[in-house]
């Protein structure tokens, strides 16, 4: 159980780690990194489920009968691009927040907002 589903255990551990970082840290860049780890765990989940025991890469070759499913990999290529775009946009926002507030700590930003209200 533990060994045969090794990938999925890793997925769960990474997912919870990422999620916990997003919730618990007040530094905006750390939050984004947590988000990135969270997304990466889902990528691993997709790729693991495409693997067929004993299968090779899906290239037509004589003597090879079992292939791994290539579709999840393709889907995840798209999802990785989306993930990069998200993190890039997030970092760009952090730069702008730093310019506007002079800090990237969540609690300090909230303090400044409360004062200006």
């Amino acid at each position: 159980m533990l060994v045969s589903l090794f990938n999925y255990w890793i997925v769960i551990v990474l997912m919870m780690m990422g999620f916990y970082i997003v919730i618990s840290h007040s530094n905006l860049i750390k939050k984004l990194l947590g988000l990135s780890i969270f997304q990466a765990s889902v990528f691993i989940m997709y790729i693991s489920m495409g693997k067929v025991e004993g299968g090779t890469a899906p290239i037509l070759e004589e003597g090879i009968k079992t292939y791994s499913n290539p579709l999840p990999h393709v889907l995840i290529l798209t999802a990785i691009v989306v993930g990069i775009a998200t993190v890039a946009l997030g970092l760009a926002l952090v730069v702008r927040i730093h310019e506007a507030y002079g800090t990237i700590e969540e609690n300090e930003i909230q303090e400044k907002d409360n004062k200006s209200c």
């Binding site: 905006l28 997030g90 926002l93 952090v94 927040i97 506007a100 507030y101 907002d113």
Partner: peptide
């Protein structure tokens, strides 16, 4: 500037 924070 709160728009940035809202967007984040």
């Amino acid at each position: 500037r709160k728009a940035l924070w809202a967007s984040y």
